[in-house]
């Protein structure tokens, strides 16, 4: 069974009388443990696909099964729960809360999952240790480098043990050495059996993934698997 199954997914935006079709019939199956890069220029429908995959937006047409659940018919509150349990987000802008120390940022999804304080603390610290920041748990985002901040974000994405990790241009704001750091971390997580969907427009970033999907004008134009040389 696939972790992600998209069937004939369309997404139409309407602004006044103008209709714009951002996704025109997407069929994708992504299996458990795959590392998939979604490539495409800006305006190709890449972000829309990411929003649909991340359950931040619902398709206008078609079905989307995430870990066997049909999320295309869910209410906003149900989608929030699915995001919380199934998806770990890594954003280009890190999106950490500046007023909270690293471990409090990491525990946030667990707060919404309704876990107790002690268990949240323990799991947040474990996740930070996993990304190599065991000694930075009390630092606020402002006291960390860009690469470190993105690793905190990865720890936050990991902490709920989600079905997929969805990384949207995770290296877009990083210098080359931090980029390598974060990509190495993703490789490592993939090695440990995680399903990762990486959205990017950089080919050398996409080169890390075992499967590359190219999207253009709202359609998948290429879907190739290949061996990755590490």
């Amino acid at each position: 069974m696939s972790t992600i199954e998209l069937d004939g997914v369309r997404k139409t935006y309407r602004s006044g009388s103008i209709e714009f079709e951002a996704l025109c019939g997407i069929d994708i199956r992504i299996g458990s443990g795959e590392y998939v890069a979604v490539l495409g220029p800006s305006g190709s429908g890449k972000s829309t696909l990411m929003n649909v995959l991340g359950c931040l937006d619902v398709p206008t047409e078609g079905t989307y099964l995430l870990a066997g659940e049909d999320v295309s018919v869910m209410s906003e509150a149900q989608l929030a729960e699915v995001r919380n349990r199934r998806i770990g987000f890594v954003f280009q802008q890190f999106n950490l809360l500046a007023m909270l120390p690293a471990w409090r940022n990491v525990e946030l999804p667990l707060v919404y999952a309704g876990l107790g304080r002690a268990e949240r603390r323990e799991r947040a610290h474990a996740a930070l240790a996993r990304v190599g920041l065991a000694d930075r748990t009390e630092n606020r985002p402002g006291e960390l480098s860009g690469g470190q901040q993105q690793r905190v974000a990865v720890a936050r994405a990991l902490v709920t043990e989600p079905a997929i990790i969805l990384a949207d241009e995770p290296t877009g704001n990083l210098d080359s050495s931090s980029t390598a750091d974060v990509l190495d971390l993703l490789d490592e997580l993939h090695g440990a059996g995680r399903t990762i969907v990486l959205i990017t427009h950089e080919h050398d970033v996409a080169a890390r993934a075992g499967r590359r999907l190219v999207i253009s004008d709202g359609r998948i134009t290429s879907d190739e698997r290949r061996e990755v040389v590490r």
Binding site: A80, E81, R83, N95, L97, L108, Y112, A113
Partner: peptide
Amino acid sequence: VREIGLRKALGATPRV
């Protein structure tokens, strides 16, 4: 707004 968006992405329902 960004914080609210993030909290929602991480699983906060409108009610929360």
